[in-house]
Design a binder for these strands. Sequence first.
RNA 1: AGGGGCGUCGUCAAGCGGUAAGACACUAGAUUUUGAUUCUAGCAUUCGCAGGUUCAAAUCCUGCCGCCCCUGCCA
Length: 558
Amino acid sequence: MSETESTPVDFIRNIIKEDLASGKHKSVVTRFPPEPNGYLHIGHAKSICLNFGISQESQGAVCNLRFDDTNPEKEDVEYIESIKEDVQWLGFTWNEDPHYASDYFDALYAYAVSLVKMGKAYVDSLSAAEIREYRGTLTEAGKESPYRDRSVEENLALLDGMKRGDFEEGSHILRAKIDMAAPNMNMRDPAIYRIRKAEHHRTGEAWCIYPMYDFTHCLSDAMEGITHSLCTLEFADHRPLYDWVLETLDTPCHPQQIEFSRLNLSFTVLSKRKLLQLVTQGYVSGWDDPRMPTISGIRRRGYTAEALRHFCHRIGVSKKETRIDYTILEDCVREDLNEKAPRVMGVLDPLKVTVTNYPEDLVEEVDAMNHPQKPEMGTRKVPFSKELYIEKSDFMEAPPKKFFRLGPGREVRLRSAYYITCTEAVKNDAGEVVELLCTYDPESKGGSTPDERKVKGTIHWVSARHAVSAEVRIYDRLFNAENPDKGVDSFLENLNPDSLKILSDCKIEPGVAEADKGTIFQFERTGYFNIDPVESTRERLVFNRTATLRDAWAKMNK
RNA sequence: AGGGGCGUCGUCAAGCGGUAAGACACUAGAUUUUGAUUCUAGCAUUCGCAGGUUCAAAUCCUGCCGCCCCUGCCA
């Protein structure tokens, strides 16, 4: 079985397998719980592939999509829409309709009231600053608030007042009564409801108090019958609180929280805060800028969902802090695109070639394979004429021994067309080569000759008269440092100033003009390129370079 | 003596007491009308370190070392 098809193996799936085998659970329910405060990135893709992936691996398993929308000040419907789109694009289907933590606001409030009635929660009237002081430090215990022992009746009245909007933001807060001396800071009477007089994107003005994550998440999981609640490592310290809430309250079930390490990718940042900053401060064109590690950026760049899913499969799931080499991601797209992308010829940096012995007005149509390994993908006709463009880098005036391409007196094959021999390099006043004069061998049509003589190099070309002009955007890594956060005050210092290079007059074979936005091609010998889904038009073709091809020649010259 | 988590090849990662899978990267070679693809071979006597238990340890025990996270009325 190939790696792509095999079911992943990791410690979480091992736990689930045991839970199913032991009868602890009949079927598995997971959830993907994003906060709609930004666009999803490749780190979320890891979580999506894990949670939704698991829901495809056992009988009756499902995965819920739940928006964790308890902070109205940071959240927005724009993000909700983008998140749904990204999950679907990745190829997953959530159970039922999407869920929202805000759907549970009534139930959550009722749970809070019962906590108060049990004497397990109280309204504190200390200021935020005082609460921070009272919390103690990592090595010293905190001290109890003077309001900690308010009566149940008083707490109930205060909580009701909070809910009705009688108090200002920050004047009161509902806290769980646990242990101010707990070595785990999360257990030092954590806040569970705060006053926020903000309009919520779904509940409008219905509420002026909003539940905190620690209170909301575990109860939402329980109400949805989640069996395994998967989250990243930084929540491990919250697990005792997750369990405390569910043990203290009477809930339908008690899901098991399991933590795994979040994804880090070399030469990029994966934090919504930092990505937001790149967007709002204009370092990139938007959340979907093809240089962004967002799912929408990666998609616009030309990556396929298959490639991304394969990537998530390859990197695995563990509890180890990791930083994945971006070459793994690159290899995943190449692997997928090598299979799927039709081949085409495109000259990025054109050098004019005149075939001196080719008839002035003749135009031939040469047959070219759309995929050398897949005849079933068919062939196409490519026009050939006296004036051509080739890649500037495919000619050297004084080529070294190992250079297989064109040079004075050298012969190369024009892919799918003819052999040409360079007879002269025409220069301008500055001494730069501006045109090549070549002769062709009429016997070599199609790319081989009766005498079967060998030519070492094959280069791509385009007929000058027939080629379409296009803008091609060449992307490089967004950051120059493997870990952009390390050793600097701001990650922005590591921004790569050359992450985008625009080539405005590339020459592409005419057939591509017919293609739809988003279509991905392989420009032979250079890389994979897609027609920009956002900005490309029939009048002005725009391509994004998705990835280069492997280049042994470039490597040799390093 | 704050609490929690983690340490297997350059980067990920299987392994869970029986003598180190796999992927990417890298190196060498073959085929090739993309210096692409494909193929073949090589790439951890060793699992953070030091002791111990055992016929046998990456796997069990003890001690050390290193890295990450936690003092939001964010999630």
